[in-house]
Amino acid sequence: MTDAPRPGRQPSVRESKVAENIRKTTQETPANATQWLVRSMATGVAVSKDTVQRVWRDNGFKPHRVKTFKVPNDPHFAEKLGDVVGLYLNTPRAFAGTFVR
């Protein structure tokens, strides 16, 4: 059973922009720098700095923390990340409650 559609504001940032932000963060390094900065990523993806911060926060990215941030080599990382997050948000009924301690 799923919820009925609810009224509300539609997301203003397209999924393609979010995916591009994730891909650049995890698979590229900026020219003349060792890590992405919020403003340089915002310019590179053509979104606001607040949007970049939101995407990084929602995905647990901390590129400024070099010792804890790992860049995956997988070119399909963004797709797989979406699949995993989708499973957490929409757990199949057969597994609901299985992993609760």
Rank of each mutant, 00 (worst) to 15 (best):
D83W: 09
F61V: 00
R101F: 10
S40H: 15
G82P: 00
K67M: 04
V47P: 05
T68V: 13
Q53K: 12
T91Q: 09
A96N: 15
V55H: 00
K62C: 12
F61E: 02
G8D: 03
S16N: 01
E28I: 01
M1D: 11
E20A: 15
P63I: 01
V13I: 04
V18Y: 03
V52G: 10
T98M: 15
D58P: 01
V45T: 13
N21Y: 10
S16L: 09
R14K: 05
A42Y: 08
D50A: 08
K62P: 01
K80G: 07
V84W: 01
V52I: 07
R6T: 08
Q53P: 08
L37D: 11
R6A: 09
R57Q: 07
G44L: 09
M41K: 07
K62T: 07
K80M: 02
R65H: 11
L37S: 15
R101Y: 13
E15T: 11
K70M: 11
Y88L: 10
L87C: 02
K67C: 12
N73I: 07
G82W: 00
L81Y: 00
N59I: 03
T2G: 07
M1I: 10
D3Y: 15
D50W: 05
P72L: 02
T29H: 14
R9E: 11
V13C: 01
F95G: 04
T51M: 14
E79D: 12
K67H: 05
E15H: 01
V84N: 07
R9C: 05
V47K: 05
Q53W: 01
T2S: 13
G44T: 11
A33E: 08
V84T: 04
N21L: 12
A33I: 12
F77K: 01
V45L: 00
R65I: 12
W56M: 01
N32I: 10
T91M: 09
L89P: 02
K80I: 09
T29M: 07
K62L: 14
G8I: 03
T91C: 14
P30N: 09
G86Y: 00
R101H: 08
V38D: 03
G60M: 02
M1G: 08
A42H: 03
G82H: 01
R14H: 03
P30V: 14
N21S: 15
H76M: 06
K62S: 08
R57Y: 06
E28L: 13
V85F: 02
A4D: 15
R23P: 09
A94W: 09
L89C: 10
V71P: 05
D74H: 02
V55G: 02
H64I: 03
V66N: 14
P92A: 05
V55D: 07
F77Q: 02
S48K: 11
R101L: 13
F69H: 04
R57M: 03
N73H: 15
T29P: 12
G8A: 00
W56E: 10
R39C: 10
R65P: 05
F95M: 14
S16H: 03
R93E: 12
F99N: 08
K17P: 12
P30F: 06
G8C: 03
D83M: 01
